[in-house]
């Protein structure tokens, strides 16, 4: 029997495309510098790559009493 390869090929292709896009949209954990207005800002991305983004911002130099 002649196997209709299109039946297998297209669904696999679609799943592959979906998976590729999903992985591309996931933000990878990383760290490094970003250049803004000729100034370098250090950042890092950690935690669960599938989790929703949580921005954590530190304080400045201050006394604590």
């Amino acid at each position: 029997m002649q196997l209709n390869q299109n039946i297998l090929y297209y669904p696999v292709s679609k799943w592959h495309l979906l998976l590729t896009n999903l992985l591309r949209n996931l933000m990878k954990n990383k760290n490094g510098y970003i250049n803004i207005d000729n100034m370098s800002l250090y950042f890092d991305v950690s935690g669960n790559p599938k989790g929703k983004p949580l921005l954590m911002l530190h304080g400045g130099p201050r006394f604590n009493g």
Binding site: G47, L55, H58, R62
Partner: peptide, 28 residues
């Protein structure tokens, strides 16, 4: 006290790291 950097958040990052992708930055 701290001079202000992302490292000062290390004490609580573990409480959210498993559920969220955490973005931290050092201000200018």
């Amino acid at each position: 006290a701290g001079l202000g950097s992302m490292d000062e958040l290390n004490s609580i990052s573990p409480y959210v790291a498993s559920n969220y992708q955490v973005i931290r930055v050092d201000f200018r």
